[in-house]
């Protein structure tokens, strides 16, 4: 199984709880905003500590009894809702930040359509470009799985299509397990191999 997640976390007034087991392909976490979808991604990435539970990805225990793997060793390719590109580094340096020395960036820049952006600075990129660079950066860090937080939000129709194709390529050609958060039913249908609905 790709993702075996049983977590519970109290965040202020909200109780975030999820129990799911998912196989290969793209698993979409679907639900209204404020239900704790992003918190689940943060718990899988190690940025948020569950009050209790167990997180196993691709057979490797990341969190559980006596286990709490440090963030940098979880090999999560996390694409945040905001691109979070490093503002003092050009696109190329952003892409290779987590990559092994001598990695060939064209393996991802081609299908993401960001070949021409390598020498640009993050502040000069459009929202769609920044999002695709963030996806490329996550992929080049040699992740064991991908976490995508609303990867298509605030993009116009044409840009959505570009990013969507990139994600489908990752799902079908690179066959990386994906855990993706969205509140858009159309996106969930198109990308999700399966859909997990979170409710209040």
């Amino acid at each position: 199984m790709s993702f075996e997640i049983t977590v519970a976390k109290r965040l202020g007034e909200i109780d975030v709880a999820l129990e799911m087991v998912a196989g290969d392909g793209a698993t979409v976490l679907f639900g209204p905003s404020g239900v704790g979808k992003t918190s689940v991604l943060n718990m899988v990435a190690g940025l948020l500590r569950p009050d209790r539970g167990r997180i196993v990805v691709g057979g490797e225990m990341l969190f559980g009894t006596g286990v709490d793997v440090p963030i940098e060793r979880r090999r999560a390719g996390y694409v945040f809702q905001e691109a979070r590109l490093f503002p003092h580094q050009c696109v190329r340096a952003n892409l290779t930040y987590g990559a092994a020395a001598g990695v060939d960036v064209t393996t991802v820049t081609g299908f993401l359509g960001i070949d021409d952006l390598l020498d640009r600075w993050p502040r000069s990129l459009s929202g769609g470009e920044a999002r695709r660079v963030a996806i490329g950066r996550a992929l080049l860090s040699d992740p064991a799985f991908l976490l995508l937080d609303e990867p298509l939000s605030s993009l116009d129709r044409a840009r959505r299509e570009e990013v969507m194709r990139g994600i489908e390529h990752i799902r079908d050609v690179l066959t990386l397990p994906i855990l993706m958060v969205t509140h858009d039913p159309e996106e969930a249908e198109r990308i999700g191999t399966r859909i997990v609905t979170m409710a209040r």
Partner: peptide, 13 residues
């Protein structure tokens, strides 16, 4: 801090 968290997920200690 969100940038620092992003760097951690990319494998930086």
């Amino acid at each position: 801090r969100r940038l620092e968290n992003a760097a951690r997920t990319l494998g930086a200690g």
